[in-house]
Every structure is written in C-alpha cells, then in structure tokens.
Design a protein around this nucleic acid. Structure first.
Length: 434
DNA sequence: TCTGGGGTCCTAGGACCC
DNA sequence: TCTGGGGTCCTAGGACCC
C-alpha cells in the first residue's frame, strides 16, 4: 500500500493557533474581520494581536497609549479566557478525530502522535496533516500553523516555519535542509544562555549543532540539551503525552500594582490577596502546601523574598498570612518603592489529612477549613471576592493610598525577567524556619 | 528584547548514613 | 582516633517554556 511507504519513523504533529486570543475574538465577532484587533485591555498592555495590527507596527507588551498613537482605529478588547478555553477544547477535539494521542500542550498548542494511523484514517501522514488543518481552519474560523515531523522538536520547527497558516512537513531526509536555514536559538528548548554558549563554540545554525558527535555533546551540555540534540537528528526522545494534567508542583500568584507603593499596610494587603487567590486554587485541586515563598519586587525590578516551611500542610490562607506577617518586615526594606508582590506555594501534597498531634490546633484548623469550603461555595455562586479576609481589604477596595506617582524614570536592566522568581534573591537574612 | 503572570525540570553540593 | 568508599535525600539555583 502506498501509504505505508513513509519516511516517518514516527509522525508527530504540532498544531499552533495563529494569534490565538485575537483570532478567537474575531471569530465570534465576525464584523471585526480585517481590522487591527488587540486583546489585553484589562491590563492596558497588548497580549495578543491580529496580523492586521502587526502590520501597523503594533507589538506585544505595547501600552494602550502607544497603540492608539500608531493605530488609532485599533479595536482593543479585554481578555476573555472562558471563551478562549472553549475554542481551545474545540481545537483539541478536532485533532482527536484523527488520533487519541493528543497532548494539550498549552491553551493554543497541541502535539499529536499520528504514527500508525494511516490505515484507520485511510490517509498518508501528509494528507492527514492537511486534512486536520483544513478542519481546524474552517470549523473554528481562523487559521492554524502546523508542523509534521519525526520528533516533537522538529514538529515545533515545522509549525513555526511559515506563519500564519503554514503547513510544513519535514520528513527524515529533509531534516538537514531545514536545520541549515535555522539559527540555534530558534530551536525549542535552546534559550539565550545556551545559544550564546554554542555561538562561542562556533555553532550558529541548528544543523551545525545536530552534526556534532555524541561525545562532544555529552561533554559540554546537560541532559535537556543532549535530548534536543537527539531530537534534531530525528531520534525521538520526547513522547506525546496524552494524559491530562491533573495536579501541580507549585501554585503562584503575582500581581503588579499601580502606582507603586512604599506603604506597609497596602503592600501587605496585596500579598494577602495573592495568598487568598493561591489558596482558592489550592483547594480547587484538593492540595495543601508545606512550603511558602513570598516576595516583593521593587520599582527597579529587584526581588526580595523569604521562604518558610509550615509545621503541617495547609490550604488555609489565614495560617499562611500569619506566617508572612512574621517575616514581612525583613523583606519590606524601608524607603523602597515596590511595584509587585507575589507568593509561591511549594511542596504540594494531595488529599492531605491533618495529623492528630496538637488536638486543639487541629480542631481549629478543621473548623477554619470548613469555613473556607463555604467561602468557596459563596464565591462560586456570587462571584470571586464576594467574601475576603480583612487583611486583604485595602487591596480589594483599591483606595487612593498616599503613594506618589513618581515612577522611576530610569529602569534597571533585566534583574528579573520571567525567570525563576527565586533567582538571586540575595537575602542575607534568609533561613528556613519550621 | 525593555520587563505580566504562571509553570516545569535538571544539577551540584552538602548532610547524613552505612 | 583515623580513614575509605558508596549511597540517598534535600536544597538552592539555573534554564527554559507559554
């Protein structure tokens, strides 16, 4: 049979929705078609934008004001994650018509393992990819970019190759052709650090990297990059994982507040609100935390934080806020202007049961946890933050606190940029407290 | 590239144990 | 009191992703 003659040891598909959020908005408001549409209004910053907006010079992270200046007829909309999630589910279910092996990688991306599906689908891999794309485009009303290749890393390269609305098929014997035209830093999993290192060793293209021999790679790079090297050569390392993600390793809540502030009460209430929100999510997944890290970010983007352990796992914000209060003043260096606060709940345990040691304390904790179960119920019915802690009050009511508008004109470079928040927190007083 | 918010996994080195 | 070798667990920090 013709379709068994394939140059795909495995056939991995990567699907990437084009300008996903903005596309969803246009899809459900057809009158916006052809217009420069942007989402992210709730923060005043561009989050997603249509190609029409891109053509006008709009870029991600631009402020509302800037966008208006260069593109006065822009349609700037608030994000509506519920709607986007529904489109996302439709996208996954369309791909699942062709294989059950679909990995929901993010809200707008998925991988699918098509290996062995030619016979059941009566299609070659190439035709399957085309058919999936056609179904997505027509049923959802916007375009998708697709890559088909022997490995995930190569499929990712494929979907990025031509955007928007691309369909790029990289069979085993064409790999080098593609890699020779690609810079190493464009490879999924090779970040700025590693690409700078590789450049220094004379490697600029993905092909130059893929052609290094095993010893060379093993001696200079760590496991993740060794695996990427293998995948670039067409050898599968990363399997498509169709299991739904059901739990978390960590849960975090971060919030920037404007204007920045130096007032203890206000900043503390922000952190209190972060903690409440993080605990809501914790309870939704029936988890409890054993370790907490909280931090503040100054106006110069310097992070300072503190990590502590809890005597027993908890999902109760009151217990956590009490601890934060204890260490708060060592993090809030007086006189600094702060722009954001955040909390990360770590060491999460599932279905936790409280140890019956300190009887009274446990009894109280259980009472409190029943209260929070009702709080969650009320929120579900009447909306988030119908009930909240007194310590969160000034964050929720957003008073005109006396903080001035003197936003530092000069911004320091890159001390904290989406990277691990715990990075270089440089806290001289850091210690673990039980 | 110009800083929003939410995640994951890996590694080196120390503590501790036999 | 000295010294060898090997293993596991935990933590802090690093790198990357959407």
């Amino acid at each position: 049979m013709a379709y068994t003659l394939s140059s795909f040891p495995q056939a991995i598909l990567h699907v990437d929705a084009d300008s996903f959020f903005a596309s969803c908005e246009v899809a459900r408001h057809p009158e916006l078609k052809g217009k420069p549409v942007v989402t992210g209004l709730e923060r005043g910053i561009v989050s997603s934008l249509t190609y029409e907006a891109k053509a006008r010079g709009v870029r991600r992270a631009m402020s509302f004001r800037e966008v208006k200046k260069i593109c006065p007829d822009v349609v700037f909309l608030p994000s509506d994650y519920e709607t986007y999630s529904l489109y996302s589910l439709r996208m996954f279910s369309i791909v699942r018509r062709f294989t059950p092996e679909v990995e929901e990688y993010s809200i707008d991306e998925c991988f699918a393992d098509l290996t062995g599906m030619q016979r059941p689908n009566q299609l070659s891999y190439e035709k399957m990819a085309a058919k999936i794309k056609a179904a997505l485009d027509s049923e959802l009303g916007f375009t998708f970019s697709i890559g088909l290749a022997p490995t995930k890393v190569l499929a990712k390269i494929g979907s990025k190759w031509k955007k928007p609305s691309g369909l790029t098929i990289i069979s085993s014997n064409e790999i080098n052709n593609y890699l020779s035209q690609l810079k190493v830093d464009a490879v999924w999993g090779i970040g700025p650090h590693t690409s700078a290192y590789l450049n220094k060793l004379g490697i600029n293209t993905a092909l130059q990297f893929a052609e290094k021999d095993e010893d060379w790679v093993k001696n200079r790079l760590t496991k993740p990059h060794q695996e990427i090297w293998q995948e670039l050569r067409g050898q599968m390392v990363y399997k498509v994982d169709a299991n739904k993600k059901s739990s978390y390793q960590s849960i975090s809540k971060t919030k920037t507040f404007t204007p920045p502030s130096r007032e203890r009460e206000y900043i503390f209430s922000q952190l209190s609100k972060n903690t409440e929100n993080a605990c809501i999510k914790l309870r939704r997944y029936q988890l409890a935390t054993k370790k907490v890290f909280f931090f503040l970010k100054t106006q110069d983007f310097i992070c300072q934080g503190y990590e502590f352990k809890l005597v027993r796992p908890t999902d109760n914000p009151v217990e956590i806020i009490k601890m934060i209060n204890k260490y708060f003043d060592s993090v809030l260096t007086v006189g600094h202007l702060f722009r954001a606060s955040g909390i990360i709940l770590l060491d999460l345990v599932a279905n936790f049961s409280r140890q019956a040691d300190l009887f009274n304390e446990v009894a109280t904790a259980e009472k409190i946890s029943r209260i929070f179960a009702s709080v969650d119920g009320v929120s579900k019915r009447y909306g988030k933050h119908t009930l909240f802690l007194g310590s969160s009050l000034s964050a929720i009511t957003e008073p005109q606190h006396a903080g001035t508008r003197q936003i530092a004109a000069e911004r320091k470079h890159d001390l904290f940029k989406g990277e691990t928040i715990r990075k270089k927190l440089a806290i001289p007083f850091l210690g673990t407290v039980v």
